[in-house]
Amino acid sequence: MPLKLPAVLLLLLWSIVPLAMTLWFSFQRYNLLNPTEHGWVGFENYHFLVTDPGLAKSIGNTLLIVGWVLVITVSLGTLLAVLFDQDFFGRGVARVLMIAPFFVMPTVSALIWKNMLMHPANGVISFLLMSVGLEPIDWFSQAPLASIIVIVAWQWLPFAALILLTAIQALDPERKEAARMDGAGPFSMFFFIIIPHLARAISVVVMIETLFLLAVFAEIFVTTAGGPGLASTNLAFLIYRYALLEYDIGAASAGGVVAIILANVVAAFLVRAIAKNIEA
């Protein structure tokens, strides 16, 4: 127990104290622009939040980002892991290139995509579309959420592929050989040997990614700033807007409480699924 104490205690402080304070503030009138006006307001902040059309929209956007990025990264990541596990020329270098996006800060990668690739005028994608005779697309105003999903998925794909590749390498070669002796072709190998072996690693990827994807922030901040309108505002960005653009601590706290509830609902499902895989 003494060995666990520091970590447990710190995390307890880190999670419980601010949580309690957030809960407290969410029932207070508290605006940094107007600090004298201070006091208990009951559920007024929540009422403000629920009647704000942005809330439902931003929750929907949050879930869309999490869901789509997970689908893209896990499915492509598995295929990539199998591909890069094969023996081919220049494997080491190709692997490094494949993993590279993970080492790029979200702010920087958002800038690359915004200014160099998806820019309607001088972006590479527009150039390619025009060179085959299509109209260029202004990604961030015509498909803002999809653009953000693409950027985030590009960032997290290497992470998924890397974890899954490590897991594939840990697969006992004797088991694969036995399967080959049993007559398994590439497809049976993939579905009956590799995928079941990866189940645990996939659950790890899903869980870690979900926790981060629920709070995607920098990519939105840099590219669309939540717009146009609320088209690409997720919960994290909504609260950021309340707290730091409108200085309304009370409303921001109420939004924070909603974010916590959402995260816990998602996490409860995940944790139950993952807990089976942790042999404690």
């Binding site: 601010p18 304070m21 994290a236 921001a252 942790i278």
Partner: peptide, 18 residues
């Protein structure tokens, strides 16, 4: 272990202000 992970699910925006 599960509890520790769940603190990670506490979104930063939820506790930013405090």
């Amino acid at each position: 272990l599960v509890w520790m992970l769940s603190t990670k699910a506490l979104p930063a925006v939820g506790v930013l202000v405090p």
